[in-house]
Nucleic acid binder design. Structure first.
Length: 436
RNA sequence: GUGGGCGUAGCUCAAUUGGCAGAGCUCUCGGUUGUGGUCCGAGCGGUUGCGGGUUCAAGUCCCGUCGCUCACCCCA
């Protein structure tokens, strides 16, 4: 009978199959290890939030809010959205759950799926997963540096190479608006020489002009007023301190005065973690700009707390894309051992032996031995084949005769040698044998 | 949202000017008593992404659609 319809996973989503789970497990393990090492505790927030939480936090005119949110109305009439990123939810929880009364700063981490309605392509999905880190309730630049250091630590513990950090300061509500108008004035005077996209950017988000890759715009950018030069004293000192802390930690970084992050809530420090890609071997044409893959990024968002609580709540954080991390692990050939690695296979022959082997399986498992089986198969041949594929060192064979005599055959899968062992002693004998 | 490339078995891919939809791998079973890997044999597996159109005849040509992919935008 043919199915009514061939179902496929929704566009931009994917299944994480058993063979890939080891990578996910490894990433989760490393993030958890790093986070706990820095005193961060796990938090999980709902996948759904009031849609307004994101539009107020990130800014009405950002791409994410304008066109990438999965927003819908519930039966009860609430307008909710699948979260496009984690930070607003964390700040919402901080404010709502009274974490202002906990010892400050509150350090939180999470591993969670995020949703953005956009065109999928390499390393970009409609549902992706982020590892997030947030430090809330402290304005000290030392935390900006520590967050960056943690991102690097995750990459290093995963065995990744060619990781880089770029850093910049976006200033604060005191100094940024002045710079913004100054920048807009500069580019407006040169508008005819800007690329098509930049003419559009000039209207609603002049800061975005800074990371345009078009050559014609590059030249204009070179002489554009520099954001770092127009920072107020407080932002200047803060940025300087962050860099000093990074130097102290020996974290390699590059200043990028053109680095801009999309959301309105960012203040002062912003940074990106990326991978310098060396795939340009067969490159016939000059790919003038080096290809860089963004693995994550973050920064300080002192403006968010005010938006959500009315009070000043300084904070800093980062998000790392788990799919991209795993993509790089595979590309760089990071080896991860399989999660399931049975040591012993239990084969049975005949109805009586099969029944007996069921109990023995439980016994083996309880004693901590990883045991595999093919209880559904009848022939010894098929079972030994399974055992071979499972890669076990030892196969136990319980036949009709053995079951009656209270013994079992123990087969060494490498040598093929077999010996008969009393059923009562088998657990002990196996443990001895596996030690070698 | 815009533009290019591609959709044949679970995977990797064949199929001549339009002429019976195939192979390798995987999986299952077998190669005489209760013994794996190698070897040999057999089987399972497809309305050629889906829907129309042209034709005696469509995997092949045309249109639409969905999906994948790459680039742009933006990002993780």
């Amino acid at each position: 009978m043919k199915p009514k319809k061939q179902f496929q996973a929704p566009k931009g989503t994917f299944d994480i199959l058993p063979e890939d789970q080891k990578y996910w497990e490894k990433v989760r393990k490393v993030v958890k290890h790093v986070a706990l090492g820095y005193g961060f505790e796990r938090i999980d927030t709902p996948i759904l939030e009031d849609a307004e939480l994101f539009s107020l936090s990130e800014g009405e005119t950002t791409d994410v809010v304008e066109k990438q949110m999965y927003t819908f109305r519930t039966k009860g009439g609430d307008v909710v959205a699948l979260r496009p990123e984690g930070t607003p939810s964390i700040m919402r929880a901080y404010v709502e759950r009274g974490m202002t009364n906990a010892p400050q700063p509150v350090k939180l981490y999470y591993l969670a799926p995020m949703f953005r309605y956009e065109q999928p392509q390499a390393g970009r999905y409609r549902q992706h997963h982020q590892a997030g880190l947030e430090v809330i309730g402290d304005q000290n630049p030392i935390y900006d540096a520590q967050i960056i250091s943690m991102c690097i630590a995750v990459g290093v513990e995963l065995g990744l190479k060619n990781l880089n950090v770029e850093i910049n300061s976006l200033g604060c509500p005191k100094c940024r608006p002045a710079y913004r108008t100054q920048l807009a004035r500069y580019f407006k005077a040169r508008a005819p020489r800007l690329c098509k996209d930049c003419k559009r950017r000039l209207k609603y988000n002049p800061l975005r002009l800074l990371d345009c890759k078009e050559e014609q715009c590059q030249e204009l950018k070179a002489n554009a007023p520099n954001l770092i030069d127009s920072l107020c004293q407080e932002c200047h000192d803060h940025f300087k301190a962050v860099l000093e802390y990074l130097d102290e930690l020996a974290v390699p970084y590059a200043l990028n005065p053109h680095l801009v992050r999309g959301f309105d809530y960012y203040t002062k420090t912003v940074f990106e973690l990326f991978l310098e890609d060396e795939h340009a071997e067969g490159g016939s044409e000059k790919t003038h700009e080096r290809s860089r893959l963004a693995l994550g990024g973050g920064g300080r968002y002192d403006a968010l707390g005010k938006i959500l609580s009315g009070k000043d709540v300084p904070a800093a954080g980062a998000g790392i894309g788990m799919e991209r991390l795993i993509g790089v692990m595979k590309k760089q050939g990071v080896k991860i051992p399989p999660l399931y690695r049975p040591e012993v296979f239990l084969a049975q022959l005949g109805a009586f032996a099969r029944k007996k082997s069921l109990k023995l399986f439980e016994e083996l498992r309880h004693s901590g031995i990883m045991v595999a089986e093919s209880f559904g198969k009848d022939s010894i041949k098929a079972q030994l084949r399974s055992a071979d594929r499972a890669g076990v060192k030892i196969t136990l064979i319980l036949g009709q005769k053995e079951a009656i005599d209270g013994v079992i055959l123990m087969r060494d899968m490498e040598t093929g040698a077999q010996e008969s062992v009393e059923l009562e002693k088998i657990v002990k004998v196996i443990k001895e044998k596996l030690k070698k």
